[in-house]
């Protein structure tokens, strides 16, 4: 019989271990999320990330060897984004009818996201690098990192801030919406997608298809709006 250490060395060299860990941790997170009645506080992404980080730290595993396995899950993010065309197509009549509301809310939401993040960070004395890196925090990660790179920020810090924004928006956004008494699925989905990109959209899709379609639309449009508006604002202010 091989001793445990040898088995561990063998397993940790194969992608299977961390791929399976990702699936199990997520399903455990999802189980708690469903048990809670889809309570946004029990966000399954957050629960899974906490569990996995704890396990990796406890076993002294590096992120690089983790991502060797988890990249197979990560890769599907692209095709899943493309598939957002399906709910969008199903709900397109509604999108067309709300075109004006969509455009105005998008531009104001996009400016609020970047403007308020930069102002709060600046008022509380964050360094210049941090202030630049937080500006596109509501935008899906690849775009946000590209924007920040343009201004000389830290793309890897932006990636962290983007994920935190997504999880926080998906967790607390619904409470803000309830507090404001907003019951319209289009508005709820659109707000969640604008503020917290794909993680907000994942949440919206689980709750209602109209909300999911509007959230996916908001995510794509906000990526575009921020990529165009931020460089213009940057030139005006700096």
């Amino acid at each position: 019989m091989n001793d445990i250490q040898e088995i561990w060395v063998y397993l940790s060299a194969s992608p299977l271990l961390h791929l399976t860990l990702t699936l199990i941790a997520f399903q455990a997170g999802n189980f708690i999320y469903r048990k809670s009645g889809l309570n946004p506080i029990c966000n399954p992404v957050m629960l899974a990330v906490i569990a996995i980080v704890a396990i990796l730290v406890a076993t002294g595993t590096s992120y690089d060897s983790y991502i060797d396995g988890a990249q197979f899950v990560h890769f599907l993010l692209g095709p899943a984004t493309v598939a957002l065309a399906i709910p969008l197509y199903r709900q397109f009549d509604k999108v067309r009818k709300s075109a004006l509301a969509i455009i105005v809310s998008l531009i104001c939401g996009s400016l609020t996201a970047a403007g308020s993040a930069v102002s709060i960070a600046w008022l509380l004395g964050a360094g210049k690098l941090s202030i630049i890196s937080i500006a596109p925090k509501s935008v899906t990660a690849p775009i946000a990192m590209g924007i920040v790179e343009q201004f000389g920020g830290l793309p890897s810090l932006t990636a962290v801030l983007v994920i935190l924004t997504g999880v926080l928006g998906a967790m607390l956004g619904p409470f803000v919406l309830n507090l404001m008494g907003i019951k319209d699925w289009q508005a709820r989905g659109f707000a969640l997608g604008t503020a917290s990109h794909g993680i907000g959209t994942a949440r919206a899709l689980q709750v209602n298809e109209v909300a999911g379609a509007f959230s996916g639309l908001a995510m794509g449009l906000n990526a575009l709006a921020t990529a165009i508006l931020l460089p213009i604002l940057w030139k005006l202010f700096f």
Partner: peptide
């Protein structure tokens, strides 16, 4: 400052966007 900015800005963005949509 970063966590305050994420918290404040994300919730404000949800409120502004949803409010205007409605």
């Amino acid at each position: 400052p970063l966590s305050a900015a994420i918290l404040g800005s994300t919730l404000l963005t949800v409120a502004v966007t949803a409010g205007l949509m409605v």
